[in-house]
Computed example of a mutant assay.
Amino acid sequence: MKHRTDEEISAPLYAYDADIRAQYGCFAGVDEAGRGPLCGPVCVAACILDPEDPVYGINDSKKLSEKKREALFDQIVEKALAYKIVFVGPDIVDRDNILNATMGGMRQAVEGLDIVPNLVLVDGNRIPDGLTMPAQPVVKGDATSASIGAASILAKVSRDRYMLELDKQYPQYQLAKHKGYGTKLHYELIAQYGIQPFYRRSFLKKQGYWPEGK
């Protein structure tokens, strides 16, 4: 089986973007990382790619190795016409619920771009309320649009880096290993060490898990 080059991998995603750009001109892709974990922020990114200076290899961040994501992150930051990364903390998640917190983060990311896009493509099946420009949801957008794929990489790498820094402060939770997701090991460590301010209390309660006296 022939190994596909980075250019071949991202070609269909860039072709999709070219069709969108032909209709709307400048547009942004938006995606998030970290909706599911028990702790840490939801990270949201918005990105406007430069069609004249493509970043080859872009795809859904979940399909890429950590090493590949890191390399692409640096290229996207260097070559993008504009990008914005937003962290939405556990306190906002607990206050607003995860969906509203994510949508709010998406709106902040778009509004924080240095360039105002004519259209926003949002990964998933819904768009944030209150956007001042047209937006379209794209189901599996991170594997469909290069711009959304780029945003997914920015969000994923940024959140992973955040969790690695948190791991240095709280090594007992082994956050570098599970990135905050609800693994068996993670639940065992919570039971042993209790919860910290970076935990999403609403998630622990919703799943019927609340370490007594911690």
Rank of each mutant, 00 (worst) to 15 (best):
R107D: 00
Q108T: 08
G213W: 01
V88C: 09
T102C: 10
Q136R: 14
L164N: 13
R200V: 06
G34Q: 07
Q174A: 14
D129P: 05
K177S: 10
R201L: 13
R95N: 13
Q207E: 15
R126Y: 09
G180C: 07
Y162R: 10
I98A: 01
P211Y: 09
F87V: 06
S152N: 09
K84S: 12
W210V: 06
H3M: 15
I20N: 04
Q172R: 10
E66P: 06
T183I: 11
D50G: 10
G89I: 09
G180W: 00
C26R: 11
K2P: 15
G182Y: 00
P41K: 02
D6Y: 11
G141H: 03
G194H: 09
A109T: 03
L131K: 03
I195V: 15
Y14V: 06
G57K: 08
A176K: 05
I9C: 04
R21L: 11
D6V: 04
G34E: 07
I148W: 00
Q136C: 14
G182W: 01
E66G: 13
Q108D: 13
S61A: 12
I9Q: 07
S158I: 00
N118C: 06
D160C: 06
V116T: 15
L204W: 04
K79A: 05
L131T: 02
G36I: 05
E7F: 08
Q108G: 03
K62H: 12
L185P: 01
E212I: 12
L204G: 07
N97H: 12
I76R: 04
G89V: 11
E111R: 06
L189G: 06
L164G: 06
